[in-house]
Design a binder for these strands. Sequence first.
DNA 1: CTAAAATGTGAATAATTACTCATATTTTAT
DNA 2: ATAAAATATGAGTAATTATTCACATTTTAG
Lengths: 204, 204
Amino acid sequence: MPSQPPATPRKRPQQERSQVTVQAILTAAAHILTEAGYDHFTTNKVAERAGVSIGSLYQYFPNKASLLLALAEHHADQMMQLAKDHLETTGDRSIPEVIRQIVAAAVAAHAVNPKLHLVLHEQVPHSEVMRQFDQAKMENLLRSFLVQQCDQLQPKNLDLTVFMVERTIRALIHGAMTEHPEFLQTGELDQELTALLSAYLLKK
Amino acid sequence: MPSQPPATPRKRPQQERSQVTVQAILTAAAHILTEAGYDHFTTNKVAERAGVSIGSLYQYFPNKASLLLALAEHHADQMMQLAKDHLETTGDRSIPEVIRQIVAAAVAAHAVNPKLHLVLHEQVPHSEVMRQFDQAKMENLLRSFLVQQCDQLQPKNLDLTVFMVERTIRALIHGAMTEHPEFLQTGELDQELTALLSAYLLKK
DNA sequence: CTAAAATGTGAATAATTACTCATATTTTAT
DNA sequence: ATAAAATATGAGTAATTATTCACATTTTAG
């Protein structure tokens, strides 16, 4: 009795088999970075942990840097998605409330995968390249918020202000993650960061 | 005709000859870091540039890390000295003036050797280790200033505030150095940083 | 002057690691 | 069933580079 040909065509291995491999590699890469740090991040170890041969790794990632890039891009996407979600529901319009919201969004975004984030942004050589994903988008997001709120800001002033705010948020979240996790736990960081930036922007 | 024995004893080679060598190595190391970046910072290249054999380098620096450490320590000393000079003459007592002074001191300290500073703090692997010199001293300096000025600060509050201020200053100066040198040139950074922190501290 | 101490030399070593390629296995389409 | 296409394998290559060490030169002290 010949079996029916399956309704869904047998899944294309070009698609699925390799996608599983790619995913295993990415997962293994993230695991090694977060658990062992960049010092131990070698392509051979990643392949081993992924349960895949080193040759397969190089079939999908032409070099080590491209693997890191893929990881950083995916992570940045996750962060941006979460940040946007936090910023959608914007009923309030007072500057301190908007700032509080932005800070909360940034803190939440950094909680997606804090260990991976720190390694990608502070351990990986040439981490500027990794930052390209986060930073530009964050600055644009901030810029539009600020324009909406403080229409008395001049364009030149705007660049400077966006720089001040973006850098301050990022630096203090990173600093808290590495040196004072308790400030993050208790919410003290959110509060102080909001206070810092509100006081600054209200004076404009 | 036998010459007089020199009044000053012939300078001890253990002292001078080797000191010249050590200095040449340190200078070459700084040069390679600032001009070529950490990627090209190999011990053999340092020795070559210093006009010294690789063996001599290892006579005075047991390993590559110790060379970086020596460089970082010397650079931190220079920065701290300059910062202290800026903070000596403290006639003013208003918070904004004190803040302005602290900001100016930090900016001046970072101008000692900006390129080297950035490489040591952002390119070198495990740059946390390099920061140990600057950071603790900076925080202590800040702490005493803040205690003097805002005596209503609680001890727990103090740790948090010192963290906020120190990190913010450092991050914005670094950010300006790498991405917006024009803000440093024009003094806009000093002004905004002072405004940011004054507004924050005055609300305490 | 001379021996010991200090300093200098640089070819060689040893370890690491990103990446290749010849070959094997699996899947697909007919 | 079968050939072509896709995917997987992993031992091997090649380049880099921190560090050593056996030996040379210079300096000092007596």
